[in-house]
């Protein structure tokens, strides 16, 4: 029964998120609205984390599986990409490395500075 209740809550939040998406014409997917709704419910204490955690942890654990069909779909869009494929092979790793490096270094530098200033930021 526990799993049914948990899944029901998660599905209901997903549905409310879709309704919001329908009325707000922003290029933000329903899932992001849902994430924010869930977080507000948890922080405000309306929803206890134990009421969703078993199903939530399971869904998160199997998340990589959910990307498979979309990526396999690359076979379909290959014709569109073919003329620029070599340039994209250069482009994607370079920009991924830059973004990860810049974001990580900046975040780490601020953390280190705060630690030195004695701000309590430890986990």
């Amino acid at each position: 029964m526990r799993y049914i209740f948990e899944f029901c809550i998660i599905a209901a939040i997903s549905f409310v998120a879709e309704v919001i998406k329908y009325f707000l014409p922003l290029p933000v997917p329903a899932s992001i609205y849902g994430l924010i709704i869930m977080l507000i419910l948890l922080i405000s204490g309306v929803l206890k984390v134990e009421k969703v955690s078993a199903v939530a942890d399971f869904l998160i654990k199997i998340m990589p599986l959910m990307f498979i069909p979309a990526v396999v779909g690359l076979v379909e869009s290959y014709t569109a990409i073919k003329p620029i494929v070599i340039r994209l092979i250069i482009f994607v790793p370079v920009s991924t490395v830059v973004v990860m490096g810049v974001c990580g270094r900046v975040a780490q530098a601020i953390r280190t500075r705060q630690k030195r200033q004695g701000v309590d930021i430890d986990e």
């Binding site: 997917p29 899932s31 869904l59 959910m66």
Partner: peptide, 14 residues
């Protein structure tokens, strides 16, 4: 599998 992506993303709030 793709269908589960929305509820799973919602669960990232946990």
């Amino acid at each position: 599998l793709s269908y589960l992506l929305t509820p799973a993303t919602v669960c990232l709030a946990v």
